[in-house]
Design a protein around this nucleic acid. Structure first.
Lengths: 338, 338
DNA sequence: CTCTGGCACTCGTATGCCCCGAGTGCCAAA
DNA sequence: TTTGGCACTCGGGGCATACGAGTGCCAGAG
């Protein structure tokens, strides 16, 4: 077990390193922090911390830098979440309040988050899997071509073209539209499949194939959209990453274009609290020198999607976590209002 | 006026510099290209080219590199557009043919373009301003709340919520829907305003306010969506930019997040042919060390949107132009089919 | 058992120096 | 107008040196 003072030393190392981006030595530490002990003592503590794997030396005769394990301990036990200042809060609210539609909300959120944290921001569009159906519309575009429009309670609209084998009359169309809506409006997406399961049977034989096609398309839309969309921003902040540029930055840029990877990363934020993935804790190799801070957000108590930031492992965790949490809350409010 | 041989020298310089990324000297030139003259002659030609501003020396006693003006001349008079190889063409077609909807087409296009050119690709969603209306749908969500859905001939769907001051009956709704569609379906967006101008007058007094609100929302949608959306990809290729990294790359990343800037850049592609903006020809300062190759694309003869790539001024112009043109053509075909 | 001051040692970085070579400009001759 | 020759420039690489921040260890004090 590490003594109180050793933890204090670790905290000081993390804070200094995050600030200066340079390995921190024993003397500098005692000067910048009032630890009340001499550099020699700190050296001993550092030796122990290194042995335990919390810090490391880039080279002999250089200062120490925190390891992933060190950051982990720092986040878990040594640092809180730094709340934002009142002006910051007000700025967030003002900025988000100006949004006019869902796209705008997400767009503003991502820019806000990038600016606050000075890192790369990732925001997932509110999820459909939790959503309910507000309306399903069927339009006849051509004799054998329909358009299916799905409207969700989060204000999102998805459309799909449906090609039918046989022409589908206006009467049948109106019939299907009415029955479909009476069954699924207000219901959760996950419940829809079983709710519409037996619908084809109640139609004339000639229309059954088309009805089945329409339903299949509807279900497909639900599933496809469960794989969510993302918006990212603040990539220019990648330039603040470090000195050994191209090598570090390239895999990150590549990862940012792989929506699947990002979704998986965000997905690991458990619903209640914030998730912090540090360095090698990230499954994707290209992000081994980055940390991901993510949190769920949503209207009401339930989280419908995730948002977060990606930055160097050497980041200001308390500040970043504070910003992420605050933004998530305000976005949730905005969504609840609309 | 520059002699034929001087132009040949300039072409050789551009080609070599693009290949090696290093300033090219007179001796190396005569070795790699069969110019049929001695290095001394080339030196004289280079002196002239430098005086005219087509090439420059990074330092005394270094080779020459092309200036923006030099690239300009190269593109305008010395280089053609390099057609893609047959396998490349086939690969493009196969890749784009797999697309399932508009988002997918654009997504695949941007990835394809990034991969072919090894640069940053930018694709504008097909524009609405040129499009025609395929259908307008009105849904009643609540007594005083409507949803307006606009479907375009390019397969795009836009929706807007409309809050009415007074409740709007189902009968009136059906009436408005029918009249609206009979007037605008098949018409161009730009023609819509005057086509619906007098619609409110033909309704009962109590409904007129609502009808006006709906029409206003419709027109607003047309205008708003004229400011197009973009998709970008291949940002990882920015790492191949050069040695003096952060300084060059940062403003480019910033520019890429400013949709307005990008739209303006693409917008300068005139409809018929390809536009190549080199270095300082780009209005936006951050892109002064980049070139933009863009072209319009669309189904049929008309271009409905633009696409292009952003790369270092030192790029393979013939190859890039060939790839951009080919992709634009195939995307146009795909759009025409669907 | 813990802390402290002292001391020798390490090693990465900055600095200065030199040399090499690619590249240039100029000039006189073909 | 082209060519070969020649002196000059200057950036970059290699090398030795000096510096200094930082370490580990040890002996002594509390």
């Amino acid at each position: 077990m590490l003594s109180e003072r050793r933890l204090e030393v670790l905290r000081a190392i993390v804070q200094d390193y995050v600030g200066t981006e340079e390995p921190v030595g024993s003397k500098a530490l005692t000067e910048r922090h009032r630890l009340g002990v001499s550099p020699a003592t700190v050296r001993n503590d550092m030796a122990v911390l290194e042995e335990e794997g919390y810090i490391a030396q880039p080279h002999t005769s250089a200062g120490r830098i925190p390891t992933d394990k060190g950051y982990r301990l720092f986040v878990d036990r040594l640092a809180g979440v730094k709340p934002l200042s009142t002006p910051e809060r007000r700025a967030i609210q003002n900025f988000l309040d100006g949004a006019v539609d869902l796209d705008d909300v997400v767009g503003r959120t991502v820019r806000l988050l990038a600016q606050l944290t000075r890192q790369v921001a990732v925001v997932q569009y509110p999820s459909l899997t939790r959503s309910t159906v507000r309306h399903v519309e069927l339009l006849s575009l051509a004799p054998a071509r329909l358009m299916l429009v799905l409207i969700t309670d989060t204000g999102r609209v998805e459309q799909r073209l449906v090609d039918c084998q046989t022409p589908f009359g206006e009467a049948s169309l109106a019939d299907l539209r009415a029955r479909l809506n009476s069954r699924v409006v207000g219901r959760r997406f996950t419940d829809v499949p079983q709710l519409v399961q037996d619908l084809p049977e109640s139609f004339e034989a000639e229309d059954r194939a088309t009805v089945s096609t329409v339903l299949a398309t509807l279900l497909e839309t639900l599933v496809e959209e469960a794989e969510e969309r993302l918006m990212i921003g603040g990539t220019a902040n990648l330039t603040r990453f470090g000195h050994d540029f191209p090598l570090t930055i390239r895999p990150v840029l590549e990862a940012l274009e792989e929506q699947v990877v990002l979704l998986k990363l965000l997905g690991e934020a458990n619903e209640s609290g914030m998730a912090v993935k540090i360095g090698h804790e990230n499954a994707y190799e290209g992000l081994n020198s980055t940390s991901v801070v993510s949190v769920g957000y949503g209207s009401g108590g339930e989280s419908v999607a995730k948002l977060g930031v990606v930055g160097p492992t050497r980041m200001d965790y308390p500040g970043t976590m504070g910003a992420v949490r605050a933004v998530a809350r305000y976005v949730g409010q905005i969504l609840a209002e609309s």
